[in-house]
Amino acid sequence: MGITHACFGLSYLTALVLELVRQGHPGRAVRVAGLVAGVAGLVAQTIFLAVHQPNPATAYGSLLLLAWVLAVFYLYGSVHHRSPAWAVFVLPVVIVLVALSFLSARNGGDIGSWFSPDRFWGAVHGLLLLAGSVGITVGFLASVMYLVQARRLRRKRPPLGGLRLLSLERLETMNRRAITLAFPLLTVGLLLGAMRVPLAGGPAASWLDPKVLGTVGLWIVALLLLYLRYATHVPPRRLAFLTIVAFALMLVTLIASHPLSMGEGSG
């Protein structure tokens, strides 16, 4: 199968360019062309994932899977909300994740079958953390849109000027739900991982591995976000900034190599 990162990466880029063009020249044709490019990218990436089955314990696999979930999220949002803003915010993240995944592959990311019965709990651990990452990323996107929208309102810019964004309340709700869903997934994923270190006979140094520390840090930030949101009256803008920090930490964690991936091939 001749599908590469370039195929779906460029499809997403085309969709993004068309959505930006739509800002100046709104029209059905441009919207449809953008969606077709987006769908083409998603189909190509789905086939790629099905064929190569990248390991989510590796930076290469986790970034690619996360990009795929976000691409689904982009298409759903574009069709559901019919707003170009959605694509303009989500697609750059998808493209960056695909590019980072590509760079990780060049640095030796392993590729191969990982979801096999003997690696079941490792796969569950990886998938839970990945699902948690999706939540953090959705929270990040909602936060960025929130900050842009809040900035426009603070400066009293026209409500419909430039990108049409969702309301602050909607974006805040989206952020809250994403983090609220991500936290239990991260917690269970983290606990499974913690149980697997002694079972897999991993070295004591595994506990101090950047990926483990990053995941624990991410869990703490998510916990802090929930605490600040539900137990205090911290303004949503500050929570949005903290969510962006959580996303940055998540990216670093995803890129870091997994302590057990060398020995086991899965997370």
Partner: peptide
């Protein structure tokens, strides 16, 4: 085209602002 985008009456613009904040 974007020729019909936005509102131009003061009351409509006011409501637009409200809708940008609340959902």
């Amino acid at each position: 085209t974007g020729i019909a985008d936005g509102h131009v009456s003061v009351s409509s613009v006011a409501v637009d602002y409200v809708r940008q904040v609340f959902d």
